[in-house]
């Protein structure tokens, strides 16, 4: 039988484009554009860490750039300013900010910022982004699959088509440090 869950079916109804988004042309006017120094990306990574609950250190700079480019592809100058404001505000919050406090902060900034925060977390976790406007409207781009944060959250598994371990490891319960 085909394995099609509800969410998968919803996804498959839309059109798709294939390929890595990092090569697409983008307009970047922020301080951490294509030739970014590592320090320019740190606020973005800090804000992302807060939203995702996973620490994103300097090894994520390259992926962070690709995600930011995908988020701001085709964005208006005002929209880019909004992104910048969100990142600046989140980056200044303490690392141990609770989910409740985060919601309060985003609520105080306005609904568009809550949606942006959700989108940012979603792209980091899934490695894909849905295009809502323009010629690619209704399509998904895969920015990364293996590096999507969902695989870090699900410590008991690995991205599909990645060697899991020695033969038969699967018969034993996961013994790592899960969060359940």
């Amino acid at each position: 039988m085909a394995l099609i869950s509800r969410s998968f079916t919803d996804l498959s109804r839309r059109r798709f484009i294939q390929g890595i988004a990092g090569t697409s042309a983008v307009i970047l006017t922020t301080s951490f554009s294509g030739s970014a120094r590592a320090s320019d990306m740190m606020p973005f990574l800090k804000a992302s860490s807060l939203l995702c609950g996973i620490e994103l250190d300097r090894s994520y700079i390259q992926l962070g750039e690709r995600i930011y480019r995908a988020l701001t592809q085709g964005a208006t100058p005002q929209d880019i300013k909004n992104w910048q404001r969100l990142i600046d505000v989140l980056a200044k919050l303490p690392a141990k900010t609770t989910e409740k406090h985060l919601h309060q902060k985003l609520k105080s900034m306005g609904p568009r910022y809550l949606e942006k925060a959700r989108l940012l977390a979603r792209v980091w976790y899934t490695g894909r982004i849905e295009r809502k406007s323009g010629a690619s409207a209704g399509t998904f781009e895969v920015i990364t699959y293996d590096e999507a944060l969902v695989w870090q959250a699900c410590t008991f598994t690995k991205p599909p088509v990645t060697c899991g371990g020695h033969f038969g490891y699967w018969q034993h319960p996961y013994s790592g440090t899960g969060n359940i």
């Binding site: 869950s5 996804l11 609950g53 899934t126 490695g127 969060n179």
Partner: peptide
């Protein structure tokens, strides 16, 4: 895409931070 779909759902439900990570797990 099963774990990705769980992440989508958790974010839609308002999860952020450690709560998001735990719910996906």
């Amino acid at each position: 895409n099963g774990p990705l779909n769980e992440a989508d759902r958790a974010i839609k439900e308002g999860r952020f931070g450690t709560a998001l990570r735990n719910q996906v797990f």
